[in-house]
Every structure is written in structure tokens, then in C-alpha cells.
Design a protein around this nucleic acid. Sequence first.
DNA 1: CACATTAATCGTAATATTGCAATTAATTAA
DNA 2: TTAATTAATTGCAATATTACGATTAATGTG
Lengths: 113, 113
Amino acid sequence: MGLAKTEIFTLEQNAVARFAKALGHPARVAILQHLFKTNQCICGELVLEIGLAQATISQHLKALKSLGLIQGSVEGTTVCYCVDFKNWAKMKHSLSIFLIWISIPPNVVKNLK
Amino acid sequence: MGLAKTEIFTLEQNAVARFAKALGHPARVAILQHLFKTNQCICGELVLEIGLAQATISQHLKALKSLGLIQGSVEGTTVCYCVDFKNWAKMKHSLSIFLIWISIPPNVVKNLK
DNA sequence: CACATTAATCGTAATATTGCAATTAATTAA
DNA sequence: TTAATTAATTGCAATATTACGATTAATGTG
């Protein structure tokens, strides 16, 4: 099928998987690293920086954008990309919570609340 | 192609992507959650718990196993799976470090070292 | 031994992902 | 207006992923 059966999983499981999938390609990791480092940059800069074809970078940018992790704004003939910090924080929170709490036994979690 | 050009990325970028990819499917997230909760369990239990076909669960287990995140040991006619805590810690460290440090400017990082 | 149980593997189908060349649409510069 | 620049989109090919039924191999039970 190639299609995940999301309906049988919890919201948390799907959210973790969706965010993790976004980080599941080194080009997208590199794009995010570069955007954090430079604060913002145009598409063409990422093409040069990373060394994949323009169409490929554009595709990865689209994936990150559709998840909300980055934003793009047209400026003349260029498109300026930057991190969407609000959604980035959500993603970071989701993944961090998962990584932290998965190893804490349910009864301990219960006592902490 | 369907094949990532890993050779043009750093070790860190590839490691983050590889680990994130492992968490990039809700079934694998669910498997890991269940293994942490029950400490260990047999394959058949995961099939019942998650509700995907046995062959499918086996495939996801293989993916987690080949990354080293879980271990499986044959016990009679069953196979008992558990988290490989050492490699889990490595993965957690890799992803956490990435999530934490990506937003810290390089000059600040430099001053902290 | 025959039979049941369990889980890996195989085969297959559907879909997704990755990558690039070529094209297109939008904007700017001459 | 024409030409140049930029980035999205299209079209395509190769490979990967997801899912499942069927089979197989291994082990245990009668």
C-alpha cells in the first residue's frame, strides 16, 4: 500500500510520527539547520549550500512548509524562507515529550500528576 | 530515485534523519511505547495490541531491530522483544541534542565550550 | 511421529519518496 | 517590450515503504 493506517493510532502516535518523518531526511535536517543559523535565506542559497537540484530542494521545502515548520515569503523574484518558531516549538515539544516520558512507568506518571 | 544522497550530508545530519525516520511511522511509535510499558513482550502480543497483520508488525520490528533500538530473543515458539536501552539512549541523545542546539546561535555555542 | 503455534520471509500490490531535467509563472532589469 | 532571474511545478524514473496473504522454518504438544 505505501500508506500508513493512521486511523488505528492515537493522536500522539500520529503526531510524533508525522514530525519525526519531517526530520527523516538529511536534506530537511540540513535545511532547518541552515535556516536556524542564518535566520532566513532564499531558496537558491539552500540549493548552493546543500548541493541538490533546485527542484529537489523545492520539494523538501514544500514538505517542511506543509507541516508548518517553515514559512516562505515572496520577495521580488526570490522566495525568503524562515523557521516558523511557533510550529517548531510544537514539534519540539511533541517529540521531546515523547522521548522523555516513554520511559517513565505509567504509575509513576500518575503519581506525578 | 527514492534513495537519499547521504554522502553529501554530515554524520550528524544522517544520524538525526536515520533515527527520526525510525519514529516516522505510528506503528513503530506504538511498538516502542508498548515495549517500554510492558518491559518486554512477544511479537503476537504486539499484533493483537496494535491491530496490523502479523507480517506487517514483523516488518516494523525488523526496521527497529536493524537500527538497534530493540532486541529480539527466541524463546520456544515465541520471540520476545525488548528495548535496547543502550542504543535507545544514543538515539534519544542524538535527537535531543539536535532539537536543543539547533536554535542556539553558533557564537553562543562557541562561548559555552 | 503428526499436529499446532509462532514469527520470519516471500510475493505482490498500492502508494510514497527521492531526485532531476524541463517547463512554467512571476518578477525584475535593460 | 524583451531578456534574465528565480523558484514552483510537471513529468519521469528509480527506489522505498506500507500492508497483507501465503508460505516456511522452528519449536512445542499430543
